[in-house]
Nucleic acid binder design. Structure first.
Length: 475
RNA sequence: GCCGAGGUGACAGAGUGGCUAAUGUGACCGACUGCAGAUCGGUUUUCCGGGAGUUCGAAUCUUCCCCUCGGCACCA
């Protein structure tokens, strides 16, 4: 089976072939840490987390790089307003971001560089660009990329002509008057006395918006990436600027072989964004839904499609993910009642069929929706088998491992089973109450049985009777 | 203006030339159960925006039209 990936560069599904063997250099644009991340960020980072996990699952040796932009005009503005040190503000929101990522079960990148740790690299690259005639310094100490030096690459990713770009940006003419061409973009911005800045050959200043990604991507990939990802809104100008300046600097192309972009998260069919002020932070949403529910909600739609945020959709996800988790719990429970050398009931074949179905779905540009559809079919067929009393240990164990295997890709099962609980009742007490209840049930003393069940319920213990006996779990 | 994505059942959302069009959620009915939970079956479901065309055959290809959303130097 061949993995196929949609490439924004060519607007086509292409067979995925890394530049060197099985090694994949993957770079995803991380956050600018001037505020808490909202659910739109989560959408992007979860999407690429799944892509990265699937690549690894498929046997690729993935180096996953995600930057943190911890200096930028927005950070400066925010810090000025709240009279904080910009770097401290950035550090605070970096911590907040990392906490969100962990809660959403997003694996840490292999490298997570910060812009402020790479000012020297940035300065060196800008110097290289100036020396090569790709950038120029102005009398104000700003450095701009000279767009006309790379005319053949303008519009390479956005698929726009220079003329089209000019028309679109027409009303913004004259914002910075020291540019030679209105589409030239800043590599270095000089800071005034009150603003934070670093010494450079041109001025005390700070990096422009796009250059930091070039600096870090080039440093950690060696110059060329296999995959560069990010939100759809970064295609232009951010990613296009990266291509121009990176290829100008390294003299090599392509800067990235595949460009992947995730679709937006909308709310009431409008893009969720800071500027529209219609966003929910990840922390807001985590107060109302479990991390697994949120992840499932995000993964249950193909990464390039738009997802609409609504309580209805979150509640659907909550129910759906519960179904998966219950099936996993029930499989673990079935393990207890299984026997050596008992019947397989077609489980091995079911697992292997499902694995293949999920792989073919994922190989088609990471079609998570279809893949999870296959998982649900698996669960529907699995459930009746789990209630059988003559199941083979080996087969059930296979099923349990299969859930874990698939979850390495999606990350939606509850992980913290061993978590200590703040409870007023011990497992032993629960077990003995269940035993008493069993006797009552044997005598058809339903009143006592129900009373015990209610008693346990009050302490957060859920009782479930089945053919294989009574089981309990924390609510 | 330029560029792009999309319109599939109650809702969400796959499928992109060929079995009665996945899957999830909801609602209703039934099975199982002392009851509950979990689960299973059935119904809602002959649902592919509209017209024309290509084809033995179209949700899928071509063309025209209608509608929605997004990008175009703040953005995941």
């Amino acid at each position: 089976m061949v993995l196929r990936v949609y490439n924004t560069l060519t607007r086509e599904l292409e067979n995925f072939e890394p530049m060197v063997g099985d090694h994949v250099n993957m770079y995803v644009c991380g956050p600018t840490v001037y505020d808490d991340c909202h659910l739109g960020h989560a959408r992007s980072y979860v999407a690429f987390d799944v892509i990265r996990r699937y690549l690894r699952y498929s046997g690729y040796d993935v180096k996953y790089i995600m930057n943190i932009t911890d200096i930028d005009d927005k950070i400066i503005q925010r810090a000025t307003r709240s009279q904080e040190d910009p770097l401290k503000l950035a550090a605070k929101f970096t911590d907040s971001f990392l906490e969100d990522m962990e809660r959403l079960n997003i694996h840490s990148p292999d490298v997570q560089p910060k812009v402020t740790d790479h000012i020297n690299e940035i300065i060196n690259i800008i110097s290289g660009l100036i020396d090569g005639g790709f950038a120029y310094v102005t009398s104000k100490g700003n450095v701009y990329f000279n767009l006309l030096s790379s005319q053949d690459k303008i519009g390479i990713l956005s698929h726009q002509t220079l003329q089209g770009l000019l028309e679109g940006s027409g009303y913004r003419v004259g914002v910075e008057d020291d540019k030679r061409h209105q589409l030239d973009f800043a590599l270095w911005k000089s800071s005034d006395e009150t603003e934070i800045g670093w010494e450079s050959p041109w001025s005390k200043g700070r990096p422009g918006w796009h250059i930091e990604c070039t600096a870090m991507a080039v440093k950690y990939s060696g110059g060329q990436l296999d995959i560069h990802g990010g939100g759809m809104d970064l295609v232009f100008p951010h990613h296009e600027a990266e291509i121009l300046q990176s290829e100008a600097y390294t003299g090599r192309g392509p800067f990235s072989k595949y460009w992947m972009h995730n679709g937006f998260l909308t709310i009431d069919k409008e893009k969720m964004s800071k500027s529209l002020d219609n966003f929910f932070t990840i922390k807001d949403v985590l107060k109302r839904y479990s991390p697994e529910t949120i992840r499932f909600f995000l993964v249950y739609t193909h990464y390039r499609s738009t997802i609409d945020f609504s309580d209805d959709n979150l509640q659907e996800a909550e129910q759906a993910v519960k179904r998966v988790q219950t099936a996993f719990e029930n499989s673990n429970y079935a393990l207890i009642n299984s026997k050596e050398d008992a019947k397989d009931h077609g489980l091995l074949e079911l697992v292997s069929w499902t694995r293949n179905a999920i792989k073919s779905a994922m190989n088609e540009d990471f079609n998570t929706r279809e893949a999870l559809g296959h998982l649900f079919v698996f669960i529907r067929k699995l459930n009746p088998i789990l209630s059988k009393t003559d199941l083979s240990y080996t087969s059930i164990e296979h099923v349990v491992h299969f859930f874990e295997e698939i979850d390495d890709i999606f990350g939606i099962l509850v992980k913290n089973n061993g978590q200590e609980r703040d409870t007023k009742i011990s497992s032993d007490e629960i077990e003995s109450l269940i035993l008493i209840r069993e006797q009552a049930r044997g005598n058809k003393d339903w009143a006592t049985a129900d009373q015990i069940r209610d008693q346990l319920q009050e302490k957060g213990v859920v009782i479930e009777d089945s053919k294989n006996g009574t089981r309990w779990k924390w609510q």
